[in-house]
């Protein structure tokens, strides 16, 4: 038996392009509680297209919470009211019949709106290009497990590497700070022996690009950790602070 459909009022941010001024447009929908949030938007778009109107632009790809493409601010919270899920994993059963839901794009100067709910997150790619890699020497394939790494150390690195780069941390932050993302990337390499050759250069360059792109400064509200779909810990931010100060003090290279 199909569950009773929910009647919802959606206030969705519509914005023609990055230059124009956007506003909220109201949509009344009837949706199955089993539908995902993105499926509901798909249904609205089908109706809009049937009426020859322009669809609501939003991003999504894998729809199983691992790619980091989707990202909406739902009732003021990135990825919606539940914890440790991406927008695609949010289902309509978490909303009440008759409820009004506000849907907005991620807000940050460094994430300009491209159209409607789509934002330009290429700043994250630029930060990664600055240092989010390890150098691998050419030559024969090294033996697996030839470098001993303690289990707890490996686990910490894996926890940091769980970041999918969705940008919810920036959206959650009142300062639009990207430090949770950057610190996760710094940590995943800094914690492992393979990341040591570029250890100081990496953190200095990534933070420099982060600052240049206009992301804000962290004020330790920890909203990022609360909204992160992968539960990335703010202890990574502390690690990055430590690495950055150490790099500034110890590194012989002057990164300006």
């Amino acid at each position: 038996m199909e569950a009773k459909k929910l009647n919802l009022t959606l206030q969705i941010w519509r914005q023609k392009n990055s230059k124009s001024v956007g506003s909220f447009v109201e949509y009344k929908v009837q949706v199955s509680p089993d539908a995902s949030f993105l499926e509901m938007l798909d249904e609205i778009n089908n109706e809009l297209e049937a009426k020859d109107q322009e669809a609501i632009h939003f991003e999504s790809d894998c729809r199983e919470g691992i790619c980091g493409t989707c990202g909406l601010v739902i009732n003021g919270r990135p990825h919606g009211p539940l914890q440790k899920i991406a927008t695609c994993q949010l289902h309509m059963r978490n909303f009440k019949d008759g409820e009004t839901i506000w849907v907005e794009p991620f807000r940050a100067k460094a994430f300009p709106v491209i159209k409607d709910l789509m934002v330009d997150r290429s700043g994250f790619d630029k930060i990664l290009q600055a240092g989010g890699y390890v150098s691998v020497n050419t030559g024969g394939v090294p033996d697996a497990n030839s470098i001993p790494i303690a289990k707890d150390q490996a686990s910490l690195a894996m926890d940091a590497a769980a970041c999918i780069g969705c940008g919810a941390c920036v959206a959650a932050c009142k300062n639009a700070s990207a430090v949770l993302f950057v610190s996760a990337k710094v940590s995943q390499y800094a914690l492992l022996p393979q990341g040591q050759p570029e250890r100081y250069r990496r953190v200095e360059r990534m933070v420099k690009v982060m600052d240049e792109l206009g992301f804000g400064s962290c004020t330790n509200t920890y909203a990022c950790e609360a909204e992160c779909p992968k539960g990335i810990s703010v202890s990574n931010i502390a690690r990055m602070n430590r690495e950055y100060v150490l790099a500034k003090v110890k590194s012989k290279e002057i990164v300006d």
Binding site: V73, R107, S217
Partner: peptide, 22 residues
Amino acid sequence: NKKAKGQRNQINGSPQNSDVFS
């Protein structure tokens, strides 16, 4: 930081993800 955030969200969800002191 105000400049970095720019336009804020219509709905303020911050009471659900951070404490008032911070």
